[in-house]
């Protein structure tokens, strides 16, 4: 507001009440300050602290000294680190593709009228709602080499003839983890995409059908382009969550067997908390930052382009 006082000769003039909260700027300041304090203390400060830590040789109980990029140099020569980098990308890429495909399929199955739809929708979200650690334990138990219900099923269906050690073999362990992540993520994709589908007027599809478009053409020419903005945002969230995942791997394999299934986060935990090499651990998790940053920037730019279109 302009606060230039207009002198008033003829008339009376009320005392301008100095209630600061009437001024949008002061009100905004007041409303934002609790958030700013908490986020400053527990996000901005740790971030700076993390950078300093990664540049030092601190251990548990030893504040350490500045050592420059020594920690990162060490990581450069660390095979397990590179395995984790590769794993993280593989894990993120594969699960995202499957979550998107299956989620979209499920969303389309749900985007119809049928009896019990509300109930089905409510139950379907359960894998996403139930604490990941707890549901992952159920999967770990299902994958148990000796007592596995999965082995039993595959055996009785005739697919296997002997036991499979799901979590004991490096390749299989990663695939098992991927399966669990997809299981947990599909509901989120499905429900979000379903909401997107519901905003697309059925008349568009009907008009296209009358114009002679087959279902497949209708999907690619109408549904998919209109759904793209929502899809991209859902993928943004999912990719970041998956890239920085910890709980699932921690419970399923703890990074094993023989450090074959580490992601950034589990490896950072193992080094920083497990072995107590705080600086080294901080370096591993900070190494995630440039990748995350690039992912976010690329996706946001792409989303903006799609939304402008």
């Amino acid at each position: 507001m302009t606060v230039t006082a207009v002198p008033d000769v003829a008339g009376r003039r009320p005392a301008v009440r100095l209630r600061k909260l009437e001024d949008e700027r002061w009100l905004a300041f007041a409303l934002l300050s609790p958030t700013a304090v908490l986020l400053g203390l527990f996000i901005a400060y740790p971030f700076v602290e993390g950078v300093l830590l990664a540049l030092s040789d601190a251990k548990v109980g030893d504040p350490g000294h500045f050592v420059g990029f020594a920690n990162f140099a060490k990581l450069w020569d660390d095979n397990i680190f590179w395995t984790s980098v590769w794993n993280t990308f593989w894990y993120t890429g594969v699960t995202t593709v499957f979550k998107l495909g299956l989620g979209l399929w499920l969303a389309m199955l749900l985007n119809r009228h049928f009896r019990g739809k509300a109930l089905v929708r409510a139950f379907i979200l359960l894998p996403f709602i139930i604490p990941t650690v707890l549901s992952t334990f159920a999967w770990k138990w299902m994958f148990d080499p000796t007592f596995s219900v999965i082995n039993w099923t595959l055996f009785h269906l005739g697919f296997i003839s002997q036991r499979i050690n799901w979590l004991g073999d490096p390749g299989l362990a990663m695939s098992s983890i991927i399966v669990v992540n997809i299981w947990r993520g599909v509901p989120f994709f499905a429900i979000s995409l379903l909401a997107g589908l519901q905003t697309i007027s059925p008349e568009l599809n009907e008009a296209a059908a009358i114009d002679g478009a087959r279902p497949w053409a209708r999907f690619w020419l109408i549904t998919w382009p209109l759904l793209l903005p929502v899809t991209l945002v859902v993928m943004l969230f999912s990719v970041i969550q998956t890239f920085a995942d910890f709980q699932l791997v921690y419970v399923m394999t703890g990074g094993g067997p023989a450090n074959a299934t580490h992601l950034f986060a589990t490896y950072a935990y193992q080094i920083g908390i497990g072995t107590g090499l705080l600086s080294q651990g901080a370096a591993v998790s900070l190494a995630m930052f440039p990748f995350l940053f690039a992912i976010v920037v690329i996706q946001l730019l792409y989303i903006r382009r799609v939304e402008v279109r």
Partner: peptide, 20 residues
């Protein structure tokens, strides 16, 4: 800024946070 912090995963900061 809020949107970006929304995207910061917990696993990025847990070690320095533990110190704090």
């Amino acid at each position: 800024v809020i949107f970006v912090t929304y995207l910061v995963p917990q696993t990025l900061l847990f070690i320095p946070l533990a110190e704090i």
